[in-house]
Structures are given as structure tokens and as C-alpha cells.
């Protein structure tokens, strides 16, 4: 059985193909303004590249902020459900999923078979997302990757306000004026976001093991700060930004099986 998960985020659209539970292909591109066209093209390109016929695809499930733009998706689920489902598949003993993307951070308490038992999403006025690191990197005139790398060089602990992004930004500027080394500021920024994320995660209970997904799971500085704040090593999947698409593909497969059982038809393959 082939199913597809499509995750349409604010920045990128990601597509993942699953054949009998195995990932056989993935592809992503910028989601742009016309998400409908982009996701159509993405599907066509993926099918062509991996030599899959459209009729072979049993189910397609979309997720992400732009999931409704995916006209060909039979199922639509939110990123919360998708992330929890995928993390269960990768690490069946997952208790908590932390998902930090460009726009928001989420914490999910994962129950049996990846069922979402409770979730929290960072509120407005919070410095707990990838966009915050981008803004801070700009203030420091470094790339986001560099921000992560240089912060690992610091073992200083500069307190910074993590409650409000605006306040935090002015603190960064204050630190720059005070000639604080960039690496220390970078660490302070990651510590602040990590503190914010841990703070939010405590709302659903900080139960271990914890899996970190989303774009920020690529940021080595953030990972270090998060591990320190939690006094634990978070697990990070190989392609943390593909997790939602993977979860969506898994859900599509499950629903196809359920539908097949209900109608009495036998599943393909």
C-alpha cells in the first residue's frame, strides 16, 4: 500500500511517500503564495521521480498550516496529531513531543499508540519559535546556522528575558553595546528559547523520553540549551522537519485500512 503525507508549512511544503510502512521518497519546496499550485506540482514531481502511478496511491493526508490548500488530500489533520503519530512510530516509548518550527512551538503529551493526550502551544508575545532565532541572528549579523554553532563555544550564563520577544531583542542590543562576546549572546538567546519551551512543556508535563522535532531540531545551539534545561538528552529523528509529513502518511495508511475493513473490501497488495 502506498500513502502520501503532505505538510504545508508557512515556509516549505514537504511531501513524503510511504510504501507498506517504509519511506520510499520525500521532497520539499517553498510553499509560496499559491499553495494549491505548489502542492500540485510537488505531487506530480514526486510521483514522476519515484515512478509511482497516481492510481497506486491508496490515501493522501495533508497537515500543516496550509493543509486545506491540498485539494487531492482525502484526509486533513493538524500538525499536533501528525507529529505525535510519527514520533510513536520512530520511538514507541515517546512520552513527550516538542515541536519547534518557524512560527510556533508545541509540546504534546503522547499516550498509547501516539494518541495526543494533551498539548500546549506557545502563546503570542513569546520568544519560543524559530522566527525568534532568525530575528536575533539578524541583530547579531550572523546566519541562523552560525548562531547555533558559535553558541556551543560559550559556557557563560547571561540571564535574558524569555517572556517577550521585543524585550529580549532590546536586551540583545544592550548586550552588544556592553561588548558581550557574540558567542555568549548566542548562548543566551538559545538558553532563553529553551527556557521558554521547557516552561511551556511543563504545562503538559515534562515526561521522558522526549522527542524534539521541527526546524529548530537542526539548531545545535538550541539542542544544547534544551538538553541542559531539561537535564536530559532529547531524541532527534534524522529528518526532524519531515516528521509532520511522515505522521500524515502514517495516518493516511491507517485510515485506508479502517475504511477497507468497514467496506469489506480487501486492501491493495
Amino acid at each position: 500500500m502506498i500513502t502520501i503525507g503532505v505538510d504545508v508549512g508557512a515556509k516549505n511544503a514537504k511531501l513524503l511517500v510511504l510504501r507498506d510502512g517504509e519511506i520510499v521518497g520525500k521532497k520539499s519546496r517553498e510553499s509560496g503564495f499559491d499553495q494549491e499550485t505548489v502542492t500540485n506540482e510537488l505531487l506530480a514531481a514526486t510521483l514522476a521521480e519515484f515512478g509511482i502511478d497516481r492510481d497506486e496511491v491508496t490515501g493522501i493526508c495533508s497537515t500543516g498550516a496550509g493543509r486545506k490548500a491540498v485539494q487531492y488530500a482525502g484526509d486533513k489533520i493538524t500538525e499536533v496529531t501528525a507529529a505525535a503519530r510519527a514520533c510513536f512510530e520512530l520511538y514507541p516509548d515517546t512520552k513527550t513531543v516538542i515541536d519547534v518550527g518557524a512560527e510556533e512551538g508545541r509540546a504534546i503529551r503522547s499516550g498509547e499508540r501516539g494518541k495526543v493526550e494533551d498539548f500546549a502551544i506557545n502563546e503570542k508575545c513569546a520568544a519560543g519559535s524559530g522566527a525568534f532565532t532568525e530575528a536575533m541572528a539578524r541583530a547579531l549579523e550572523v546566519s541562523v546556522d552560525e548562531l547555533g554553532r558559535i553558541s556551543l563555544k560559550s559556557d557563560a550564563s547571561v540571564p535574558m528575558n524569555a517572556q517577550c520577544a521585543v524585550f529580549a531583542e532590546s536586551e540583545v542590543i544592550s548586550l552588544l553595546h556592553a561588548r558581550t562576546p557574540k558567542q555568549d549572546i548566542a548562548k543566551a538567546i538559545h538558553d532563553a528559547i529553551a527556557s521558554r519551551i521547557v516552561s511551556m512543556t511543563r504545562r503538559v508535563g515534562l515526561n521522558k523520553p522526549v522527542v524534539l522535532v521541527g526546524g529548530m531540531a537542526r539548531n545545535v545551539g538550541f539542542i544544547h540549551s534544551l538538553n541542559t534545561a531539561m537535564q536530559d538528552e532529547v531524541r532527534i529523528p534524522d529528518a526532524p522537519e519531515m516528521i509532520a509529513a511522515y505522521g500524515a502518511a502514517l495516518v493516511a495508511a491507517e485510515r485506508a485500512v479502517v475504511a477497507a475493513t468497514e467496506t469489506g473490501a480487501s486492501g491493495p497488495g
Partner: peptide, 13 residues
Amino acid sequence: HEPQDVTEQHLFG
């Protein structure tokens, strides 16, 4: 006057 991560589940921001 230290940043902390323990009150969010008790006090709304």
C-alpha cells in the same frame, strides 16, 4: 531577577 521556567503551568503570562 533570574529567568526561570517553572511558573508557566501555574500563572498565565
